[in-house]
């Protein structure tokens, strides 16, 4: 079966979705990703959806699930590169992707993850400005 590759980049995991996901592939991605978060102890997940032209409520739910599950495992999720048409459609559909952070591109997404992680570490170690 086809699989969506998950890349490890230091403390983060990067998933680039390049094909239209049918349901089983999306569900497999959800399971794989959560496993990877646990295995690598990743602190952040970046999902690059710049090549995705359609997000319906099913896909939205998968993305939301990934974010919630990762959060439980102490990792933040950022969706990067959403197409304007997709954003407009999601809003009209009434799917705000709660709990998911967004970023314009992968670079900004990483920046966002770093600040998020620093903030949470800052709360415990009082070391908010490390770096």
């Amino acid at each position: 079966m086809e699989k969506i590759p998950i890349l490890r980049m230091g403390k983060f995991l990067l998933v680039t979705i390049q094909v239209d996901l049918y349901d089983r592939l999306a569900e497999a991605l959800e399971a794989d990703l959560v496993q990877m978060v646990k295995k690598t102890g990743a602190q952040g997940v970046l999902i690059d959806i710049s090549a995705v032209s359609i997000i319906d409520s099913f896909m939205g739910r998968i993305i939301g699930n990934i974010a919630t599950m990762s959060k439980i495992l102490d990792a933040e999720t950022v969706v990067v590169g959403m197409q304007p048409a997709v954003a407009i459609t999601l809003v009209e559909l009434g799917l705000p992707l709660k709990g998911v952070h967004s970023s314009l591109n992968v670079e900004r997404g990483m920046e966002l993850l770093r600040t998020k992680i620093n903030l949470s570490e800052g709360q415990s170690d009082d070391d908010g400005y490390a770096e």
Partner: peptide
């Protein structure tokens, strides 16, 4: 509100 939501979904 819709415009703001869509902008946020894009990451801005």
């Amino acid at each position: 509100i819709k415009t703001v939501s869509a902008t946020r979904l894009m990451g801005a």
